[in-house]
């Protein structure tokens, strides 16, 4: 028995070390189709690398945008600039509260915004957040909060990517990495935004698109709600004004989700500053979107201008103005 336990105890560190070595070798040499659970996408498909680089250098912005794809494809810094605001978009694909919290912890102090606009959609609360975690692990520094995130997710992909990413950072292997600013139809715009080449949502394609059942009901993940509370606390502690916004989606997607009332009530219970643009804006499901839930450039312009000067949002315009005038 002693021999057995001794061997088991010896085997565990041996296993961990070998796992680490195999992982590095695999990540460095194995072809893509063998790397199922090691997803190290530096840059990612939405320029997370460039966004993080910019976030590190940016100081004292007027408005900071948070959220998932509705954010980084929904708030165009150029439009806000035209109205006199310096903004930064920290949104990223499938970003869930778990990642938003980490990003805030890392960049809130140097971005130091006057106002935060947090695009809240029910979906990020329903997702486990693995996809966005991998994006973050590959493109931002690895520290204790990354480890905590991986432990919360308890997912092999997250662990593998965490280890591999840490190794690459340790030896500075991605030093020469230069990210493409243009990827297929997407162009990265300084300030964190990604512009899609103008195209339109076809209702035909929409019909084929199936939305998973898990995204149709309001059943938020416990750890996402906890992370959300922590986000609220971070911002409250810094005494920064925050507006919650829900960006418009097509009627199809909006109606697929059966918990809109519950979700609105949930957000409203946390803040007085929540505007759900799905009730306010009359957008065309085909002309203003490039797919079932992302605005095209034309839609973004209409949406951003509505946010900036729409009657319904006057209250928040006031907030905007107050803070902007503070700065000026």
């Amino acid at each position: 028995m002693k021999k057995f336990l001794a061997n088991v105890l010896l085997f565990i560190p041996f296993l961990l070390t070998s796992y680490f070595i195999f992982l590095i070798a695999w990540g460095s040499f194995a072809p893509g189709h063998l790397r199922k659970n090691l997803i190290y996408g530096i840059g990612g498909y939405a320029n997370m690398y460039s966004r993080i680089c910019e976030a590190k250098k940016m100081h004292n912005v007027d408005i900071l945008f948070l959220g998932a794809s509705h954010t980084y494809r929904g708030f165009d810094p150029r439009i806000f600039k035209a109205y006199g605001y310096n903004t930064f978009n920290l949104g990223s694909p499938n970003q869930t509260p778990l990642q938003t919290e980490i990003l805030l912890e890392r960049y809130l102090s140097n971005l130091n915004p006057k106002l935060i606009i947090y695009e809240v959609h029910p979906w990020p609360f329903l997702l486990d957040g693995v996809e966005s975690a991998l994006d973050l692990l590959a493109n931002d520094k690895i520290d204790m909060s990354s480890v905590k995130m991986a432990l919360t997710l308890n997912n092999v992909k997250a662990y593998n990517t965490l280890i591999y990413s840490w190794y690459r950072q340790l030896f500075d292997l991605d030093n020469g990495f230069k990210e493409e600013m243009k990827k297929e139809d997407d162009t990265y715009i300084s300030g964190g935004y990604v512009e899609k080449k103008l195209s339109f949502n076809s209702p035909e394609a929409e019909k084929k698109e199936e939305i998973p059942v898990t995204l149709a009901h309001w059943k938020p993940k416990a750890y996402q709600l906890i992370a959300f509370e922590r986000i609220l606390k971070i911002i409250k502690d810094k005494n920064i004004e925050m507006v919650f916004v829900q960006a418009p989606v097509t009627k199809m997607v909006f109606n697929v989700f059966d918990g809109n009332d519950k979700f609105d009530a949930f957000i409203s219970s946390k803040t007085d500053h929540y505007i759900n643009f799905n009730y306010l804006m009359k957008l065309d499901d085909s002309l203003d979107f490039f797919d079932s839930h992302h605005l095209n450039q034309q839609g973004v312009r209409v949406f951003n201008e509505a946010l900036l000067k729409g009657k319904e949002t006057q209250l928040h315009n006031k907030v905007l103005m107050t803070h902007a005038s503070f700065k000026k």
Partner: peptide
């Protein structure tokens, strides 16, 4: 250890599929 590693690298994981978003 290599078999362990292959399990870690190739096992099915339960996260939401990355297809939709």
């Amino acid at each position: 250890a290599f078999i362990f590693f292959l399990i870690g690298m190739l096992m099915e994981t339960s996260e939401t599929p990355f297809i939709y978003f």
